[in-house]
Design a protein around this nucleic acid. Structure first.
Lengths: 350, 350
DNA sequence: TTGTAAGCGTTATCAT
DNA sequence: ATGATAACGCTTACAA
């Protein structure tokens, strides 16, 4: 039990108060705080006792000044998927829980011309030890270069290796999408549609590669009419659904590059009284809350996003984390996504 | 254009470098940084020029130490709804954009016995200027007392006034729920079911009050069988749907205390081949992404959460924000939620 | 209007 | 193993 502190009025005890009470120099107290190994068990006990009695908590600003570094890491994101961001945050916080670190959050506006300047200003002002970059901004090489330039460590999170293992944590989206599409093929689907992600997104490209890979393995091809554009938004799913499901020979299954677009396609199917999964199987990507909230529940790919948060933090600041935190140096930084089968997929009825 | 700084190796220029270059004392530079009014236009220009030339950015740790306070505010949350948390975050960041403040994020575990201790440790370690408390933990009086005790400002966010206006930002959920239910009644619904939120949540109580208010105004009552328990989770919506829609005389409309449970009820309706909205109208609460992703799109209540984030930040740290940030002192701190009508509601067919 | 000296609470250096 | 003294980069108090 720490002693109760005084309220807002009472002054915080300082390292000097502790030193005085324990009858040692403040440097010795500092040694205790920082777990120096050159300490008698006895003096350490005495100092700890004094700390306890006073309810002393080291002033982080003073420490930061003396150390010439603070204890903050930053999360930079411009992710449309709230659940993804929050799960990642949670993973990061799991990782830094028993450390002195705290997490700063900074959304950035990918579209803005001043994006790089904004980030520069933020990093210069706050000087966090490091920055975690979530997709899609993690794909921006200029941003990584900026961090490098400012001496701020960084780790990029992506759906495929974007950088060397020291600067990247990624998942194997391509493989898992291929696996999902193979599952459709195994169910005897032959007319399989595809709804793309936004152009220029690495994640979209990876998912497309996985899709094409599975198709060509099976000797199938993707007619132009089955290949619909998208941008990860629900409305794009609606448009793609309208287009694909109005064809004279519509696909019996559609892979959508994310859940939100899959929800759009599903809505169109409902509106057109097309039975899902009887007449149409649908697969999404993200395992967002939407995936389980729509009916029928959506088969999808789960990104190990929380685990990636943990890993990203461990990669970023291994030297600030408890020993348990160390990542194996030889680790490739690739985590596995998982294909999750739910009710939206079945064999085509015919 | 700020001058490019050296990379990781180069040392940051300090206030002394600026002072030397500008030919003034460092205190004068400090005055420029802190916008003192007692400065000749000429010296100010000279110092600004030097700052520009060197690319000087004041060290926040040193400032924090000298000021005896840092420039951080904290967001404490334990909210299951990711979109809500993120929208709120965005609002806070909008508000502090042109200030020196940064945002720390800290999820807390409402269920844990050590919750208060964890928060205490966090606040003592980081010593943010203030803390923003999101529901449901904003309803915890002990938490507010802890902030008070530690001299950390706080603002609580809730669905009804939880504290005096200096410590609270809220929305008028009760009124808007009543409005939504009146809309059902105006459409000639008479058998209206209710799915409750979790016990002990203020938000749940407010929504229930609003519901009951509208019912009794119309001289309707809520049979016990129409009053289903819930906990804001999808699975509870499924259970409630199973119960309500298996009755020999089922309701023609169901108000669910949040969107997630509404999605559950909707799934049950689909599974039972009950037409929505023809045979059953459904209303939710939150205007979460789910509301538009399910089919048919869900009528719901939109919480002005981003605006509440802005307001909460302005209430918490008016003295750190640009002048535009001031909140009118006489303001009650109550923002308006909005009823949003979508396809899930219609007159009962009969 | 500007400058000087002292101090914020910690850690680094270098003794002992 | 411990301590004295000087940083760390800035602001405050007071003086000029």
């Amino acid at each position: 039990m720490a002693a109760q502190k005084k309220g807002a009025g009472g002054k915080q005890p300082t390292i000097n108060d502790v030193a005085a009470l324990a009858g040692v120099s403040k440097k010795t107290v500092s040694r205790v705080i920082n777990r120096s190994e050159f300490l008698t068990e006895k003096t350490r006990k005495a100092v700890e006792q004094a700390i306890e009695t006073l309810g002393f908590v080291p002033n982080p600003q003073a420490r930061a000044l003396a150390f010439r570094r603070n204890f903050l890491i930053a999360l930079l994101h411009d992710n449309p998927n709230a659940q993804t961001v929050l799960n990642f945050q949670q993973g990061v916080l799991d990782a830094i829980k028993d450390s002195d670190l705290a997490l700063l959050v900074r959304p950035v506006d990918r579209g803005s011309e001043r994006m790089l300047d904004d980030v520069r200003t933020f990093l210069e002002k706050q000087r966090p030890i490091g920055a975690l970059l979530l997709p899609p901004i993690s794909e921006n090489d200029d941003l990584a270069a900026l961090c490098e330039d400012l001496g701020v460590r960084y780790v990029r999170v992506g759906s495929a290796p974007l950088d060397d293992a020291k600067h990247c944590v990624s998942s194997n989206d391509r493989e898992v999408v291929a696996e999902a599409v193979r599952a459709l093929i195994a169910l005897r689907h032959r007319r399989i549609g595809f709804v793309r992600g936004p152009q220029g997104f690495r994640s979209a490209a990876e998912r497309e590669k996985g899709f094409m890979e599975a198709l060509s393995e099976a000797g199938l091809d993707l007619p132009a009419a089955y290949n619909a554009p998208g941008n990860y938004r629900y409305a794009a799913g609606i448009e793609a659904g309208e287009a694909l499901l109005s064809l004279s020979e519509p696909p019996t299954a559609i892979f959508c590059s994310n859940d939100e677009m899959a929800a759009g396609v599903m809505s169109v199917a409902h509106a057109k009284r097309i039975d899902v999964p009887g007449a149409l199987s649908i697969i999404g990507f993200d395992d967002s809350p939407t995936a389980t909230h729509i009916w029928p529940a959506l088969s999808t790919v789960r990104w190990p996003i929380r685990e990636m948060g943990v890993r990203a933090a461990k990669t970023l600041v291994p030297d600030f984390l408890p020993l348990a935190g160390k990542v194996d140096e030889s680790d490739s930084g690739v985590l596995n996504s998982t294909f999750i089968q739910r009710q939206s997929v079945a064999s085509p009825q015919r």
